[in-house]
Nucleic acid binder design. Structure first.
Lengths: 207, 207, 207, 207
DNA sequence: GATGAATGAGTGTTCATTCAT
DNA sequence: AATGAATGAACACTCATTCAT
């Protein structure tokens, strides 16, 4: 992979914030350069173009996003506990990378640009595989039922979070989460538990 | 509410498509005018500005979005069946209005513009109320368990769909849905069932 | 000459006000139509174009501007009194037609448009002739000195007024003329007397 | 004050010419850019906007307009000669800055824009003060009469010139000044003398 | 005769990018 | 390597005018 120097990383971070806040098209290279305290020309100089900066940003972030959960499968805990851990990890990772998720969420459906998101696809596939393994393990132990569409579980987790976070001002008001600290706390507790319960119930309850 | 004439509706539809495809900032008024087969100046003439066009669009779409589900509560069916119907209605409505949902999804998290989305908030609140009524009914009949965070159910439904649809190219490949017809079919059957099962399980299964 | 109907005159008056206030280029036909309470298309309809509206306006106003001073020369008063009367008439007429004077003042030096201002030139020439006659009469009576550049007297009168009026906010403050009534009063008394004295002194005082 | 670089001054000069010839609203930024041989975007780049360009222009010109006449009062010449010199200076300065005077003349009476013309007001006030001092000196020496409205003398000088110059095509024809050189010559001789005589007569002749 | 709808040319401005150093 | 100046294309929008009725 390409290595980025300090200045480049500053630019990437500035860009990430702005892209997630006002969108790619809503962000000007001048705004990025101002936020990163560098000259406008540096963006073209370092990354080639604004679009390539986005690509670099995606690569930069996704490369650090690979879930370090391979050992989860090896742990001697029940599949149910594994699911709980997996969901918590999912939420945690999306929350940590919420800016990038927001960007990707929009850019993936934007027909103007077609980013090379193979890296992201790989991550998703590997996560899906991990989930499938856990579920199959649970099904083999007769803990989980059989008729579940495994592929639709990640979108439920990711989608729930993304929707919740993108409409955070609405939900903050609805749930009385007056500060960002309260919101973060809510996400790591109530929200995570809700998702855990949801996925567990889906896997266990026969209907 | 303001009434829109035929030409205005054509413009609104063209704008909706483009906004959902390439974003508000990624859409030029010339692209809209070309798609709607009208002169550029007509957009300012009819709506005042590009931004006001978006506002008009939101009003236009949301006003027709109110769920006609009040009678659902009156039907003599079990709360479980009500939930099934409600989820199916939800999915159906989001699918029908997927363009607008995509636009709103982005605009709600975009700090650049702050649309007056009171109408949309009202819709969400009324839907949430309806859901809460059904759940309370089920809880009163001891069909549903008590410890559920009702407010987090709509984001799970909406978020699951939105994420699924915004990443449809990924999921189409993953699930072998080679055509849009297959995709639509999948959504109305497997996807809907998945969500119905998920919500039902969450409400019924005590864990 | 062309006759104008009531509606046309309303348009002309609205246009005159706006032209004098914000200039020809600064005035939009829509602003005129709004002020005159008529449809925008009427302007093109009645006058052909915005530019031709200006031409019509000039014709309309100048035709009523001809000084009715021919009898002044016949009156049995001294040339000095005639000069006094002439200056007072001048000021009065410019004040009455100040909007049109303001328009002409600017448009005459505007290279973009070359109005056919023959009518205005005729007026100026005839006024100059009248002035010259009075001065010659005074010189014949040895009341006025000989070495005076008659052609430069009208610009002194018109220019003094125009400059004063175009900078009226400055002079109102300088002279404490807090209201428009005070300003009008000042013009008809002190200002007029100042100009009368000036011209008389110029004509009489040998230096 | 802000310093302007070479390119900026080129732009300012091009703008001044065009503004004085066809007015501010009649001038397009593209016309300025063409005349100054620069890219259109440079105008926004250097001055922010077309309107701010005008403001910069006014500041640029007025700052160099301050009359260097303080020593006039110290010279050991009679008040009459001082008036002569003052008028000549006035005419000279207006002639040198005729473009800016034309612009200001229009903009001061244009309700659309309200330029901050404090600098110009200061210049006018200081000139008026100088004039008042000379007149009071002459009155103390019984050379000048008492009943004169000093504040109306500058408008007579400035107005006479401005009107003359703005209608120069009329006066050139009237006075047979077929070339611009002849016109300039006329202004520095006959026209200046006319104004000197006028003001002197006003101050000296008791009527 | 009179008008609301519609047009295309043109407006000032902003944009990502490149140039000269 | 790093930058301020400069560029041309594109932007949303406004304009006077004309069209269809």
């Amino acid at each position: 992979m390409t290595e980025f120097n300090e200045k480049q990383i500053e630019i990437l971070q500035a860009a990430e914030n702005l892209f997630s806040e006002v969108g790619f098209d809503g962000t000007t290279v001048r705004a990025i350069s101002k936020k990163a305290n560098i000259n406008v020309a540096m963006i073209s100089y370092y990354f080639g173009s604004k679009e390539k900066l986005l690509e670099s940003l995606v690569i930069y972030r996704i490369s650090g996003m690979q879930m370090d959960l391979e050992n989860l499968f090896l742990e001697h805990i029940s599949p149910i506990e594994k699911i709980e851990k997996l969901v918590a990890f999912y939420v945690q990772r999306i929350y940590s990378n919420r800016c990038m998720y927001q960007i990707l969420h929009f850019e993936m459906s934007n027909k103007k640009r077609d980013l090379d998101l193979k890296a992201f696809t790989d991550v998703k596939n590997s996560n899906l595989q991990l989930l499938a393994n856990i579920i199959h393990e649970g099904q083999a132990l007769n803990l989980f039922k059989k008729n579940v569409t495994i592929e639709l579980i990640p979108p439920t987790i990711i989608g729930s979070f993304t929707h919740f976070y993108m409409n955070k001002s609405y939900y903050q008001k609805l749930l009385g989460l007056t500060t960002d600290v309260l919101l973060e706390n809510y996400i790591t507790t109530t929200f995570t538990e809700h998702l855990q319960k949801t996925i567990k119930a889906l896997l266990v309850y026969e209907n």
